[in-house]
């Protein structure tokens, strides 16, 4: 005669009971969001930030964007020469840099292709708006996010990647 088996239902109730006891003693897995906030990982793709000094309006990001949600306008101007007697320098000025976050797919291609380290990801995510038009962030708003950009993390051992620095 085989040993009497515990019915599956009772076994299942045991699992839920154990989970209930654990929740009661050690607290639940969820947090009450607006009161308690979980910190996203430093690499999280929350919002794109712009370091305006580094941008040369080269349009690479706007061109590589898969849904073309970056709008850039710029102009060139002649800056006075560094030394007296030198040639005037050609400089690029950024007139407009808008990202439409209502279109953005958060793929990160713009941040990746930027050759001048002007774009960064910030894990900040609380920027929802009642009106969809307000999701178009202009360059001053994109610049404000720059404070929230965390430093890049160290790499796991065995890596040959070089750690980049965030311009402050």
């Amino acid at each position: 005669m085989p040993a009497p088996k515990l019915p599956g239902l009772v076994k299942g109730l045991g699992v839920t009971l154990k989970t209930m006891l654990r929740t009661l003693t050690r607290g639940s897995h969820t947090v009450q969001y607006p009161k308690v906030k979980e910190a996203p990982t430093p690499r999280a793709r929350g919002v794109i930030t712009l370091h305006e000094d580094n941008c040369t309006a080269c349009m690479l990001c706007a061109r590589e964007c898969p849904d073309w949600c970056i709008y850039i306008e710029g102009h060139k101007y002649k800056a006075p020469p560094r030394r007296p007697g030198g040639k005037p320098r050609q400089k690029n000025a950024l007139d407009r840099f808008d990202i439409d976050f209502s279109l953005c797919m958060y793929c990160g291609i713009c941040v990746e292709v930027c050759p001048f380290e002007a774009l960064f990801w910030s894990p900040e995510f609380e920027y929802s708006e009642p009106k969809i038009a307000d999701l178009l962030h202009d360059k001053s708003k994109l610049g404000q996010w720059m404070e929230t950009v965390p430093d890049f993390q160290d790499y796991e051992s065995g890596s040959e990647a070089k750690k980049a620095k965030v311009p402050r």
Partner: peptide
């Protein structure tokens, strides 16, 4: 997310390798 930056849409694979290396402690 800790590696790729995206919970659901990692977009981490690149032709010829990966976008980035693993972070420390992962």
């Amino acid at each position: 997310e800790a590696v790729t930056g995206g919970r659901f849409h990692p977009n981490f694979d690149r032709i010829g390798g990966l976008k980035d290396d693993l972070p420390k402690g992962w």
